[in-house]
């Protein structure tokens, strides 16, 4: 019975999400697009975290995707949609190569290396003016779908749904076993026949492709890229804060965290410009101190306690 209601609830939320442009104004739609982009980053970050690997590469891969998509369109004449897929592919290849090089080390070494990807590409892009547009960035001649807000919204929503579906697949198939086993105990994971290296490289590449596509979608809907805005540290810090707030190691946590924090941030921006960053900081500190399980974890343990007691 509970399962039955769960599916009805999912269907209602999905319907509300798809029909959003028809009952919400332009401002709300633009917030929704930003929130959905962050949703992709937060979920994909969490998907890799489930294997115990902490990545700071979101900004780098987002920026690589943004530039890949814009340059594919400007220099090779690819269509906007094709350039977004291309952005995912470029991020996938970059992450796979990097993963093959550093994922044998894992943990801290991996985290630090991912932080470097963004910096390396940002510096190359800044200085290779003839190809990338240099520090000023590059502007697209036209925005995707000629700027149609409804279609743009659906494009972002589609990418977010893709991330959610992939995340659910990661939880329901034996990838879940592989990732949790690697996080819990690598020796037992190996001696249970899990090829740790292979799984980590594949998962890192897939989540990076999502982040690259998020960058591509962002660039195509806003029509420009610059080294500073496309590789902004916001794309590292905010998704982490969002996933932590909602609860890590699952699909629902990052979704709840992103929606709450994303909407809250927009609201705060109106009243205390830039103050939302302070609020983020306070939220991260409070979560780590008082509810490291996040919202989903707290609710779940309440439910379990009620069932037991």
């Amino acid at each position: 019975m509970i399962k039955y209601w769960k599916y009805i609830l999912i269907a209602i939320i999905l319907l509300l999400g798809v029909l959003f442009p028809f009952y919400a104004g332009a401002y709300q739609q633009s917030i929704a697009r930003t929130v959905l982009i962050y949703l992709v980053l937060a979920i994909s970050w969490d998907m890799l975290l489930r294997s115990g690997q902490l990545s700071f590469g979101m900004a780098g891969l987002f920026g690589i995707g943004s530039y890949a998509s814009v340059l594919l369109l400007l220099r090779l004449g690819a269509s906007p949609m094709l350039s977004i897929l291309g952005a995912g592919l470029v991020a996938f290849v970059v992450a796979a190569l990097l993963g093959i090089l550093v994922l044998r080390l894992r943990a801290m070494y991996f985290a630090i290396t991912t932080l470097a990807i963004g910096e390396i590409f940002r510096i190359i892009i800044r200085n290779w003016s003839s190809f990338t547009g240099g520090p000023e960035g590059a502007i697209l001649p036209n925005i995707i779908f000629d700027g149609d807000p409804v279609l743009s919204y659906w494009l972002v929503l589609g990418l977010a749904l893709l991330a959610i579906v992939l995340s659910v697949i990661f939880q329901k198939t034996r990838i879940y076993f592989a990732l949790t086993a690697i996080r819990n105990n690598e020796v037992v994971a190996k001696s249970s026949g899990i090829n740790i290296f292979k799984y980590l490289v594949i998962v890192f590449a897939i989540t990076s492709a999502l982040q690259g596509m998020a960058g591509g979608v962002f660039a195509q809907t806003y029509g420009f890229v610059t080294p500073e805005s496309s590789f902004s540290a916001d794309y590292i810090l905010l998704p982490i804060a969002m996933a932590l707030l909602g609860g890590i190691y699952g699909t629902l946590g990052p979704i709840i965290g992103t929606v709450l924090l994303g909407v809250l941030a927009e609201y705060l921006k109106l009243y205390i410009p830039y103050g939302h960053l302070i609020v983020y900081g306070i939220i991260i500190i409070c979560i780590i101190m008082f509810m490291p399980q996040g919202i989903v974890g707290v609710v779940r343990s309440k439910i379990i306690r009620r069932e037991v007691g």
Binding site: R174, F177, A178, T180, A181, R183, N184, N185, V187, V188, S191, S192, G193, I194
Partner: peptide, 27 residues
């Protein structure tokens, strides 16, 4: 060859059933 190591031999965050299922999933 299957190993039961000396300590920390389980996946504590998974259920008993999941631990067992995992034992066969990759063989």
């Amino acid at each position: 060859i299957a190993l039961v190591p000396q300590e920390r031999e389980l996946f504590p965050e998974m259920t008993v059933y999941e631990n067992l299922e995992l034992g066969a999933a990759f063989i």
